[in-house]
C-alpha cells in the first residue's frame, strides 16, 4: 500500500496481537496510519475495533489482564518499549470517547485541565488556549458568554465538542475517536462530522464507527475489522466501491453485522 502523495505514517503497527486473559482479541494486525488523514475503522460489534483504537494510546492497558505482542511505532518509536512514557504518548495522541465525559467543572476548567497538568499556569496563555480550542471545536460562539458555567449544563453534542476542545488544548498530533457520535442526535452528529473534516488539516484522526455511511462520508482510508482480524484496509472509495475481500463486501452491503 504505497502512499501516492508521500505522506508520512504516524503509526506503523507491526504484527500486533492482543489478549484479554486467555481470550485473544486482536490477531496479527499490520497497518500504517497516515498523517493528516481521517482513518476510519469499521466492523461489527465485538470485532476488536475499539480495543485496537485504545491500543494506539495504551488506554487498553487499564484493563489489568491485557497482554500484547508485536510493535506499534508512533513516529518511529515503539510505544511498548519499557522506556516509553505512556503519559507522553497520551499527550501526543489524544482521545475522544463514545460517551461525552467532560469533568464536573466549568467549561473553562475543562479546557485548561490538560495544559495545567502539563505545567502551563499563566492566565493569559490559558485564556488564549481556551478561545483557540473552543474555536477549533466550533463551539466558541455557543459558549463564549458562559465559560464559567458547569459543562454538564450543555447538550450532549456540545459536551462532546467540549471533549474535543479539551483534547485540542494540549495540541496533540493524533486524535483517536471511539464512536464519538453514537450517543448524539443527528444534528450534533453532523456538526462533529464537519468538525472532523476541518481538524484533519492539522491533526491525524483515527475514528472508530459502527456507522458505515459515516465512514464513507468523512474518511480517507477505511479499515474493516472482523473477529479481531484486519480484513481489508484501503482508500475509503476503493473499499466501499470495489472491496477486495468477500467478507468486506458482505458487511458493507449489509448481509451481516
Amino acid at each position: 500500500m504505497a502512499n501516492k502523495n508521500n505522506k508520512n505514517a504516524v503509526f506503523s503497527v507491526e504484527n500486533l496481537n492482543l489478549w484479554y486473559g486467555d481470550d485473544q482479541a486482536l490477531y496479527d494486525i499490520n497497518m500504517d496510519i497516515t498523517e493528516n488523514e481521517v482513518t476510519a475503522i469499521i466492523g461489527p460489534s465485538g470485532c476488536g475495533k475499539s480495543t485496537y483504537l485504545k491500543t494506539l494510546n495504551r488506554m487498553v492497558e487499564l484493563v489489568p489482564i491485557v497482554r500484547t505482542s508485536g510493535q506499534i511505532k508512533y513516529r518511529g518509536s515503539n510505544i511498548f518499549d519499557k522506556s516509553y512514557s505512556v503519559e507522553e504518548l497520551r499527550t501526543k495522541v489524544g482521545m475522544v470517547f463514545q460517551q461525552p465525559n467532560p469533568f464536573p467543572k466549568s467549561i473553562y476548567e475543562n479546557i485548561v485541565y490538560g495544559p495545567k497538568i502539563h505545567g502551563i499556569k499563566d492566565k493569559e496563555t490559558l485564556d488564549h488556549i481556551v478561545e483557540k480550542s473552543l474555536k477549533g471545536a466550533a463551539l466558541w460562539e455557543e459558549v463564549k458568554d458562559r465559560l464559567h458555567e458547569n459543562a454538564y449544563g450543555l447538550s450532549g453534542g456540545q459536551q462532546q465538542r467540549i471533549c474535543i476542545a479539551r483534547c485540542l488544548a494540549i495540541e496533540p498530533d493524533v486524535i483517536l475517536m471511539d464512536e464519538p457520535t453514537s450517543a448524539l442526535d443527528p444534528i450534533s452528529t453532523l456538526k462533529v462530522e464537519e468538525l472532523v473534516q476541518e481538524l484533519k488539516k492539522e491533526y491525524s484522526i483515527v475514528i472508530v464507527t459502527h456507522n458505515m455511511q459515516q465512514a464513507a462520508r468523512i474518511s480517507d482510508k477505511t479499515a474493516f475489522f472482523l473477529n479481531g482480524e484486519l480484513v481489508e484496509y484501503s482508500d475509503t472509495n476503493t473499499l466501499f466501491s470495489t472491496p477486495a475481500d468477500k467478507r468486506t463486501e458482505d458487511y458493507i452491503t449489509g448481509r451481516f453485522g
Binding site: 494510546n57 488506554m59 507522553e88 504518548l89 497520551r90 470517547f97 485541565y113 483534547c167
Partner: peptide, 16 residues
C-alpha cells in the same frame, strides 16, 4: 471511571 479515563487520555498521571 469515564472521568478518570478522560484525564488519563490527556496524559495525566495516576496521582494527577
Amino acid at each position: 471511571n469515564h472521568l478518570r479515563y478522560g484525564a488519563l487520555a490527556l496524559g495525566a498521571t495516576r496521582l494527577e
